[in-house]
Amino acid sequence: MLTVDFARLPVGPGVRVLDLGCGGGRHAFEVLRRGADVIAFDMDQAELDNVANMFAAMDKAGEVPPDASGRTVQGTALDMPFEDGSFDRVIAAEVLEHIPDDMAAMAEIFRVLRPGGTAAITVPSFLPERICWALDEAYHTAPGGHVRIYTLAELSAKLKSTGFEIGPHHHAHGLHSPYWWIKCAVGVDNDDHPLAKAYHELLVWDIMKRPAVTQIAEAVLNPIIGKSVVLYVKKP
């Protein structure tokens, strides 16, 4: 399930990409499939081990184009072990809402991105996130949870003050917001609730089959209740 639109963030052979806070590696895998050189960066070594295993499996299955490379690096977004201007593209998907000093993380993204490079920054959209916070305090108070709710204006202003040029934006995952509202209403850890289970099965079916009906529904819902907002910014 991709949040970033790679038509807006083109990657390919010879392009150096940082997937910051890569988690399970969903964007890193797509970048590698497209032939770029990607570093999957995260604090969680267990997640990185799984990503490294998948990189190896993709290579063995012939899914990695010639000269493309994928590797993992552990560290913190506030002090990344990379030289200035190391990357042509940076992806920071659902990361900044976890970091108390988000502007320090933005400054690090700006530092490691080359002049003329582009970053895709995604965070939870204001309305869906605000509803989740209202329905269940545990949703955002768990260790490592979300520490703020962004408006698009706030996110844009912070990135602009860091030095970025603000580009286009869009919303994603409109079908996912109701799932999280259900989860928060019945208890965010209550995975066995029948309604939550049924909606989860719908989302899995959508991800696996991509039927026209759900693609149309998501396209309609994204601008209204898209779970994530994606902002594309450029380093001058």
Rank of each mutant, 00 (worst) to 15 (best):
L2A: 14
V4D: 09
F6W: 11
A7R: 13
R8V: 11
V11S: 11
V11A: 12
G12D: 05
V15Q: 03
D19Y: 00
G23M: 02
V31N: 01
R33W: 02
V38H: 03
M43N: 03
D44R: 01
V51F: 00
F55I: 04
A56E: 12
A57Y: 06
M58C: 05
G62L: 07
S69D: 12
G70Y: 02
T72P: 01
Q74H: 03
G75Y: 01
L78I: 03
E83I: 04
D84K: 06
D84G: 05
F87D: 00
D88W: 01
R89Y: 06
I91P: 08
A92T: 01
E94S: 13
L96R: 02
E108D: 00
F110R: 04
V112P: 05
L113F: 00
A120S: 11
I121R: 06
I121T: 07
F126C: 05
E129C: 07
A134K: 09
A134I: 03
D136T: 09
E137C: 10
A153N: 12
K160E: 15
S161M: 12
T162D: 06
G163K: 04
A172V: 13
A172M: 12
H173A: 15
H173M: 14
L175E: 10
D189A: 15
N190R: 07
D192E: 14
D192R: 06
Y199C: 09
H200Y: 11
E201H: 13
D206K: 14
T214F: 14
V220R: 14
V229D: 05
L231I: 07
L231N: 06
